[in-house]
Amino acid sequence: MADLKIKGVTIIETFAEAFPMVGTRVIITAPSLEWALIAARTMTGFATSVIACGAEAGIERTLSPKETLDGRPGVAVLLFTMDTDKLQRQLRNRVGQCVLTSPGSACFAGLDGEKKLKLGASLRFFGDGWQMSKLVGGRRFWRIPVMDGEFLCEATTGLTKKAVGGGNLLVLGKSHAAVLAASERAVKAIADIEGAITPFPGGIVRSGSKVGSKYKGQIASTNDAYCPTLKAAVDTALPLDVEAVLEIVIDGLTKESVAKAMHAGLHAIAEGGAKEGVTHITAGNYGGNLGPHHFHLKEIVAWAR
């Protein structure tokens, strides 16, 4: 069977295997976009993988003053975990330690939904009795006195149980520089997609993992089949001339947002063509038995929504 190629880059006929997650969105505003970004980056720091960070999080997009409830610049943040209790705990801790603490910040709900997560409803206790609740247009907000004035924080935000985590693309190429440049383009393209984030450093992960290890207690270990230095020793997935592999991991509020992000990312990677040095685009899966969501690259290439 002839492989699918885009500008000479081979698209391997495989699929990304993704998992159901619970997710939420909050809006952080501040006196300037710079400070909203500082709060958002701090809140989404150390949130690359649920394996050891407890959550996966990232900045979805920035918001103009016209788009926010208080008319100040803002940032939309997405936060994902494997279950609702963990999401609640992560949200409280991250907003409490990283947004409440950030100069001039305010925090609002970013998602509707029947199910709610406590936001200001738990952080209000920081106010030690001096907090004030205000209902504006049917939404409850807490005003918590802090040293630079008040931390305005909506009582709750919505959550979705239809979130999807672990959508991914693997970029194979003849030079580290080429693979990195193509991956950077993909992250940039995905940044524009509503409801999707790339939680790893700069959106890119270099240490793809497989399940299990030769060591007891190590639940995940390096994905040796994709390590270029081990080509001769393991059942490698890499051609001899591949020097580096990078992975883009995508979490989204819906299956569609992940598919859309993969579509945008895949085409951004292939944009440079084979002459740039990228040879293959593939995706990671565990044989299809672990995750219910399968994103087949063949379908992703033609995704049109």
């Binding site: 205000k134 504006v136 247009g137 004035g149």
Partner: peptide, 17 residues
């Protein structure tokens, strides 16, 4: 005299309504 983000929120809501 202090700054209140709550007033911005209220103004925004009043305008929208």
């Amino acid at each position: 005299v202090l700054e209140f983000d709550y007033l911005r929120l209220l103004e925004h809501w009043l305008r929208a309504n």
